[in-house]
Amino acid sequence: MQNTSFKALQISENTEKQYIRNIIQRQVSDLPSGEVLIKIHYSTLNYKDALSSIGNKGVTRNYPHTPGIDAAGIVEQSDSPDFKIGDEVIVTSYDLGMNTSGGLAEYIRVPARWVVPMPAGLSMREAMIFGTAGFTAGLCINALINNGLSPEKGKVLVTGSTGGVGTLSIAILKKLGFEITAVTGKPNAIEFLTKTGASEIVTREALDDQSGRPMLKSIYAGVVDTVGGNILATALKSLNYGGAAAACGLVASPELHTSVFPFILRGNTLFGIDSAECPMPLRKEIWHKLASDWKPSDLESLATEISLEDVPQKLDLILKGGALGKFLIKL
Rank of each mutant, 00 (worst) to 15 (best):
M1L: 11
Q2E: 14
Q2G: 03
T4C: 07
T4H: 10
S5H: 10
S12M: 00
T15E: 13
E16T: 06
Q18E: 14
Q18R: 11
I23P: 00
S29Y: 03
L31S: 02
S33I: 01
E35V: 00
V36K: 00
L37Q: 03
K39W: 05
K39F: 04
I40F: 01
I40G: 09
I40K: 04
I40Q: 08
Y42S: 04
T44I: 08
Y47W: 09
D49Q: 05
S53A: 15
G55A: 00
T60M: 01
R61G: 08
T66E: 07
T66Q: 04
P67I: 06
G68F: 02
A72L: 06
I74D: 09
E76Y: 05
Q77W: 00
S78E: 00
D82T: 01
K84I: 12
D87G: 06
I90C: 09
V91Y: 02
T92C: 11
S93L: 09
Y94C: 04
N99V: 03
N99E: 10
L104D: 01
E106N: 12
I108L: 06
A112V: 00
W114A: 02
W114M: 09
V115K: 02
M124F: 00
E126V: 05
M128L: 13
F130R: 01
G131P: 03
T132L: 02
A137M: 08
I141K: 10
N142A: 07
N142H: 14
N142S: 13
A143V: 02
I145M: 15
E152A: 15
K155L: 15
V156F: 12
L157D: 14
V158C: 09
S161L: 06
G164V: 06
L173V: 12
G177E: 12
E179P: 09
E179K: 15
I180D: 12
A182W: 11
P187D: 11
E191C: 00
F192P: 04
L193E: 06
T196W: 08
T196A: 10
E200S: 15
V202F: 11
T203E: 14
A206G: 10
Q210C: 08
Q210R: 14
S211T: 14
G212K: 03
P214L: 05
K217Q: 15
S218Q: 15
Y220H: 13
A221P: 09
A221I: 14
G222Q: 09
D225C: 08
T226N: 12
G229M: 12
N230I: 09
L232A: 14
L232Q: 11
A233F: 02
Y241V: 14
G242E: 10
G242W: 12
G243C: 11
A246M: 02
A246D: 06
C248I: 01
S253F: 11
P254E: 13
E255P: 03
F261M: 15
F263C: 03
T269C: 01
T269I: 12
L270I: 03
G272D: 01
D274Q: 07
D274Y: 02
R283N: 10
K284S: 06
H288V: 04
K295T: 08
D298V: 01
D298S: 10
I306G: 01
L308M: 01
E309R: 00
P312S: 02
L317V: 15
L319Q: 12
A323K: 08
I329K: 03
L331V: 08
